[in-house]
Design a protein around this nucleic acid. Structure first.
Length: 154
DNA sequence: GCCAACGTTGGC
DNA sequence: GCCAACGTTGGC
């Protein structure tokens, strides 16, 4: 049974257009340094799971595309690069601390802004909309997934 | 740039 | 194990 996820990216780092411009329209979801988010990738994500690509920390935050998980979780390459923003001295290749999956673009959508999401009763319980939530990866309920993909013209 | 909310670190 | 201090996220 496939699961569904919402994954946040700052467009100044990787935007939906950046993803669309990549050779395979696929990217390694590097840089997650939160244990809950890591555990979702490591323990629950399966190839083919649905992903809502979300732009955060930007002018118009919101969902901007539909993607899918395209690889199982594997060690995040940047944790081993000294001096890199995502270097982790406590992580070793033998016992890596951080992992990521690859995410492949299915299609860009219009922007479903955070503002609009908050006005939709069917989405009121979305985890990413709850007060204080900062997790960059959150599970999406199948009903919420169905509603959003329909709204965005599946 | 501000700041609320949350996660992590480290002294004890 | 507690918790104060600090760092980060992310909307506004």
């Amino acid at each position: 049974m496939a699961r569904y996820w919402l994954m946040k990216s700052e467009p100044s780092d990787v935007s939906i257009d950046d993803l669309a411009g990549l050779p395979n329209q696929s990217i390694d979801w590097y840089g997650v340094r939160n244990y809950q988010a890591r555990n979702f990738m490591r323990d629950q994500m399966k190839v083919g799971d649905g992903v809502l690509f979300y732009h955060s920390n930007c002018e118009v935050p919101g969902i901007v595309g539909i993607c899918e998980v395209s690889t199982p979780a594997y060690p995040d390459k940047f944790q081993f690069v000294p001096g890199h923003k995502y270097f982790d001295a406590k992580s070793t290749p033998e016992n890596p601390r951080w992992v990521n999956v690859d995410v492949k673009l299915v299609r860009k959508t219009r922007v479903l802004s955070l503002k609009e999401m908050r006005e939709i009763p069917e989405l009121a319980n979305m985890r990413t909309l709850q007060k204080g939530n900062r997790l960059s990866i959150t599970p999406v309920d199948p009903k919420e997934w169905a509603f959003i993909t329909r709204l965005l013209g599946a």
